[in-house]
């Protein structure tokens, strides 16, 4: 027990030398969570961010993978983060509890971010990240351009809102209260899961997709995925027969939906374009 106390005291001492005063902008920021990684990469000054989580190097999960690759990764372990000697640690509310608690006990400043489940959350997290990093002006600019892009996308309402069925690995869907629902509805679509009363993530039975005739499935790009059973329903004969447009799955890549970032506006734009093309071809036929 005494040895452990002594160890912690020594650690605290080492940390004490590294940490900056609280009101100054932090100089060594470590991010342990995919979502905070991306926001910090958007906003941090050169050299301010010293490590990001290993997930952010993955192009499928992160919109900032190219920038993230310039930085060393951490795996969300308290030991790694400790050795990086940060003066600010960014984490998600779902980041490993044990690691976070240990870092807090060791006296690190840890800031936790809720995952973004709406466009408002994205704006709020951008502004908060700006405050924490001492980059408020940049954050306000980024949030303003995000807002402008979203409101211009909202203007573009078609005459008819197509019905989309969000359908991911293992038959999961996103209902009300999710970022995907906001992405779909902001793009001028109707979300089948929300209309069926599904809240949050839930299973969307194949039968209900067939009975409701969605105009398109919105999901992963199967060609990018390694073989598994998770996407076998995409080639289910009933599903293929049920999608009226017959054009397969409209991709909504995970990197835009796992975390809300300014890039979320891009994927809304893709869905708006898709809707325009659909209504145009439908109009041409009639």
């Amino acid at each position: 027990m005494r040895a452990a106390d002594a160890l912690i005291a020594v650690m605290l001492l080492i940390v004490g030398f590294g940490s900056a005063a609280a009101d100054e902008a932090p100089r060594r920021v470590v991010s342990m969570n995919l979502c905070t990684d991306q926001l910090a990469l958007y906003l941090a000054a050169p050299g301010q961010l010293v490590s990001v989580s290993y997930l952010s190097h993955d192009e499928k999960a992160s919109v900032m993978a190219a920038d993230a690759r310039r930085l060393p990764v951490n795996h969300g372990l308290a030991e790694e983060v400790f050795l990086l000697n940060p003066d600010l640690v960014l984490a998600g509310t779902f980041t490993s509890r044990a690691s976070i608690e240990m870092l807090v006990r060791l006296g690190f400043r840890v800031e936790r971010f809720e995952p973004e489940s709406s466009l408002d959350d994205i704006r709020a997290n951008i502004l908060r990240m700006g405050r924490l990093l001492g980059r408020e002006a940049e954050a306000r600019r980024l949030a303003a351009s995000f807002d402008a892009e979203i409101s211009s996308l909202r203007q573009d309402r078609g005459s008819r809102a197509p019905l989309g069925a969000a359908y991911y690995a293992n038959g999961l869907t996103s209902g009300t209260g999710t970022l995907v629902n906001e992405i779909i509805t902001t793009a001028g679509w109707r979300n089948l899961a929300a209309e069926l009363g599904i809240e949050g993530m839930g299973l969307l039975p194949l039968e209900l997709i067939v009975m409701n005739h969605p105009d398109a499935l919105i999901g992963n790009n199967q060609k990018e995925e390694e073989p598994s059973l998770a996407f076998q329903n995409y080639s289910h004969p009933a599903l293929i027969a049920a999608i009226r447009s017959g054009t397969g799955v409209t991709p909504l890549p995970e990197r835009y939906t796992v975390c809300g970032t300014p890039a979320t506006a891009q994927v809304i734009r893709q869905l708006v374009d898709r809707r325009r093309r659909m209504t145009k071809s439908a109009g041409g036929k009639s």
Partner: peptide, 10 residues
């Protein structure tokens, strides 16, 4: 659609 559900799913 009902036929599709019956023949291809159930």
């Amino acid at each position: 659609a009902a036929t599709l559900v019956m023949r291809e799913i159930r």
